[in-house]
Each structure stands twice: as C-alpha cells, then as structure tokens.
Design a binder for these strands. Structure first.
Lengths: 209, 209
DNA sequence: TGCAAAAGTAGACTGAGTGCAAGATAGCAC
DNA sequence: GTGCTATCTTGCACTCAGTCTACTTTTGCA
C-alpha cells in the first residue's frame, strides 16, 4: 500500500477515534464537529471529506455488517435452509463475542453501545442500516431460495427485526456489567427461542382463535 | 372550544398545509423553514413553537397511528388471539382505504407518500415511529396475553416489521396510478399471506433443514 | 376597563454541512 | 535532485436548522 493510501487510513482512524473518545466522555450533542477536528488535528473541512455527517463518525463502524445476513444466505450450502444458515451464523458470532451480536466485554465497545442507545440521532441512523440489510436479505432470499418477492420481503423484514431485537437485548444484559462469558448461555437460549419463533410462527404462543 | 384553542388548531393546520404543499411541489430539501413560515404567514419562531423539527411538519400526520397496534391488542375480545385481532383490524382498515395501510386514492395522500419515500430524512423519522409502535405493542402483548417479555418483544418486532412492509408495498402499487378499489383484492390477499406467515412461521417456505 | 397568562415576534446566536479557490504534498517523469 | 500533475488539505464565507432572550400583542376573565 502506497504512502498516500496509508496516510488516508491513518487520518480516518484518527478522526474516528478522536470523535468517539470525545462523544463517549461528554455526550454526542455536547461535542461539536470543530472540537473533533481539533482533537484529531485536521481541519473541519478535511473531517467532512472523510465522514459525510456527524453521525457517520460513530456508525461507520457498523457499516461492514450491513450486508452480513444477505451474504450468509448466499453462501449457505445448497441443502441448508436460509433460516438455519442465519440461525447457525448468529450463534457462531455469539460464541465469538462478536460486537455485532450485542454481546461483548470490551469496555470501549460497551461505551460505544451506550452512546448509541442514548443518542436518538445515532439510533435513527442505525435503523437505516437495518433497512438496507433488509432489502439485501430480501434480494438474497428471492434469488437463492426461489421465494416470491413479497414473501421474501416479509421474511427479510421479520428476520432483521428479530436480529435487531436480539442484539439490543444482549447489549442491555451486558450493560449491567456482567461478563459476556457468563451471559453466553442465556444469549444462546434467547437466540434459539427467537429463531424457533421465526420458524414455527406465533400461533403456538396464543393458540386461541 | 375557546377562541384561543380554535386559533391554535387553525394556525397549526395552516403551517402544516403550507409546508406539505411546498415540499410536494419543490422537494423537502429545496424548501427552507423560512419559506414555509412566510407561506403560512407566521414568524419562523412561531413555526418552531408548533413543530419541533422540519421533519415533524410532515410526519406529525402519522403520529396518531403510532400506538394503533397496541390499542388493537388491548381492545380485543377476551377469546381472540392478538394476531387475529391485528389481522382483522388491518383488513378492515384496508377496506376503509385508510391511508395508514398505504392503500389510498386521494391525490394529496399519494403525493405525501411519494414525498416520504423520496426523502431519507423523512423515512428515518418514520422508522422511529415504528420503534415506538413496537415498544408499545410489546408491552400490550406482555400485559394482556401473558407473553414473557423477550417473546413479546420479538413478536412485536415481527408484527411491526410486517405491517410496515405491507404498507410500503401497498403504496408502491398505488403509486403506479391504479385506483385503490381495483387493488383492494390484491392487498387483502397480501395481508392474509403476511399474517399466515407470521402465524405459521417461515418453515413452510423452506422446508429443508 | 384592567390585568395576568398565553401566544407571537424580532434579531442575534450556535452548530452542521457546502462551495470555492488557493496552498501543500505524493507520485512519477526525466 | 527538478519539475509537473493529480490528489489532499485548508481557510473562509455562506446557507440553513434550531435555540435563547427580551419584547409586543392578543385572549380570557374579573
């Protein structure tokens, strides 16, 4: 990688780190873009060349996971159902303590999550990621599992909604301070329950008409 | 109702109408708050007394429906399952051409929807409504259907996601210009399919492991 | 008619984000 | 090394959303 490229990566990282550090310490709304730029030792204008909005300074760290569900469905073995693939993958990421699942020990990741949850503007941005995930997952289901378009969209919406609910629930558990290792069994059980619910539907919950 | 109250209602309506008219005509981002205030013949500061943000000028029209799913679940007969109540209610609103379902003929409502869909900031705000709906529905399920908290949250997330998907699908159909009456059978069929999916789960779609 | 509370207004201010034009730096030729 | 070019960076001025404060007008009610 050339010097120019390396510098860009370093600058980007410096800006993001400075931003998150300040935001975590003083709150998202209490820190201005100008302060972030000063802390990262770049001009305000350069900061905007790297991150289009203030929110992106934080949420870009989650952008990689946007198309994860779609990728998982596309990469599954031919004889595996999409739902099983998604289920297995989530449990696997859970065991790896992937922050993507909401289950994590790392203090900086916990602080980042706390920042997200307590800042409406950031949550709104995260929900937009979910929309993208959903659209891509729907496409993947439509193309690889011979699912009609409307059905694929409905299924994708359900899966992503469940995904998000699980992640937020896991984070809330972690936020109490309990070590992730100790919470893993609970989290796995919740995941299994959630995917069973997706798989067998809501009728078993409320059998009556 | 006293004069003061009537005036407030009228002013609020005038501001909102002026805003939506301008936004529909020129686009949300192309119209400034100042222009809206001038069109409604109030000061900028007064406008902000009625609507906290620019987005709210548009989306406040949907705010009433935020707790509709929760209300439906709470108001259902004792022997009816929550899912049936939600299903019946959605079909009923569909037959009434309630804009809430995305199925509508009225040109101004269609224009409003088009505005929403083409403006990311407005869509983001709508998704926040969904979050609230979801939280309230979860509470209603937890309290009236003896559903454990996590289960209630998961179910609520699924229902609201499906709701939103149906509404957007219906709107997309209406946006082509077809009269709502003609689309009703399709929309009802889609709704039935969606609630069946919720009810019996995703396994029937992809039977293999 | 008079008075208190509510509603509206004017104008200055902060902070996010953009456009532009000039300056600094990396890559590459020679 | 020297110079040329493309890219990166910067400063400055600008627009617009949203807030604060202090002031005027209007309404409800005695």
């Amino acid at each position: 990688m050339a010097l120019r490229e390396r510098k860009k990566v370093r600058t980007r990282e410096a800006i993001s780190t400075a931003a998150i550090t300040l935001f975590v310490e003083h709150g998202f709304d209490q820190v201005s873009i100008t302060q972030v730029a000063e802390a990262a030792d770049v001009s305000r204008r350069t900061l905007f060349a790297y991150f289009p909005t203030k929110e992106d300074l934080v949420v870009h760290r989650f952008a990689d996971h946007e198309d994860e569900p779609a990728r998982v469905v596309r990469a599954r073995p031919a004889d595996q159902s999409p739902l099983t693939a998604l289920h297995d993958h989530f449990v696997e990421r859970l065991r790896a303590h992937d922050p993507f699942t909401g289950l994590t020990d790392r203090p900086d990741t916990l602080a980042l999550y706390r920042l997200l949850r307590s800042t409406p503007a950031l949550m709104a941005r995260m929900l937009q990621f979910n929309e993208t995930s959903q659209r891509e997952l729907a496409a993947a289901l439509h193309e690889t599992a011979a699912t009609p378009e409307l059905t694929a969209r409905l299924a994708a919406a359900q899966v992503i909604a469940v995904h998000w609910t699980l992640a937020m629930t896991n984070f809330d558990l972690c936020a109490t301070g309990t070590p992730a290792q100790k919470l893993l069994p609970t989290a796995v059980k919740a995941t299994n329950q959630a995917f069973t619910l997706l798989s067998t539907g809501l009728t078993p919950l409320w059998p009556a008409g």
